[in-house]
Design a binder for these strands. Sequence first.
DNA 1: TTAATTCGGACAGAAAAGGTCCTATTTGCC
DNA 2: GGCAAATAGGACCTTTTCTGTCCGAATTAA
Lengths: 146, 146
Amino acid sequence: MLRLSKLTDYGVVVLSRLAATGARVAAVPELAMSTGLQEPTVAKVLKTLSQAGFVDSTRGARGGYRLARALTDIPLAEVIVAFEGPIALTACVDGAVGGCESAGLCPVHGRWDPVNRAVREALTRITVADLASPNAFVETRAPVYT
Amino acid sequence: MLRLSKLTDYGVVVLSRLAATGARVAAVPELAMSTGLQEPTVAKVLKTLSQAGFVDSTRGARGGYRLARALTDIPLAEVIVAFEGPIALTACVDGAVGGCESAGLCPVHGRWDPVNRAVREALTRITVADLASPNAFVETRAPVYT
DNA sequence: TTAATTCGGACAGAAAAGGTCCTATTTGCC
DNA sequence: GGCAAATAGGACCTTTTCTGTCCGAATTAA
């Protein structure tokens, strides 16, 4: 199913919500309220978003989070990488030599790279802004599926 | 990490191997030997490949499997669908209305569709043949990553 | 000083994946 | 006709991964 972790999904949701609060900092309880997610979950998501540099954090009382970049400058691929690590569709990539014991027999050894590149490219063309606002994403190429 | 199931990976490996045996049918033990995978695993993979119509099976003594289509006619997307179900990057898609309790609050509700379409398109452009033989895959569009 | 808030990590329960095995059915061969 | 070789289909258990929550420490405004 090519599943994406729920955390990644939540990350996109929280980023989208933060776009609405603008320059004002928003704390976890407020964001949990407005997104409908649990507070601990929102807190966890924001930690990841902060480490990845998508949001700026202010500690202490009256602290909170605020977008560090515009949503249009955040490719979806980067969010996925932040939550799930490098985009690679199989386990026998990322240069992990020696990980596959049957490399000598495997006819597809090392051949997933173009696949991963294609998927990365597709996910880089789409930004979080495209997922947050209506009709923001316009495909620049004709889709295969109609 | 956008992980792909190992079965899917094995599926591609087995299909690639079957391309080498040509019109002759090959049985599970032989394919297990030549791919370096365990027999039960190969058997499981072949059942899925057979149901999906990628291979033709012959039952009984001297039976076995053989490719039903050329590898160049098998888009990677189809193999993934056979092993993992529809390609959808999140749980709140495939028209499962009512599955998301906070749909009213969710700012990205229903907005993953273009993402899924983009990934599907990328995985449809690549065939199993591209993964099986050297230099078979030539990108038709400029990649974002260099 | 106090309260609010982020930071970092740890943890247990739930869900999914992975691999194996068993039985039934089909078919070639002696 | 009987036997051996093979696929078909499903059930099962183990292992891994994900998910969600919680706790203590550090920080800062009032």
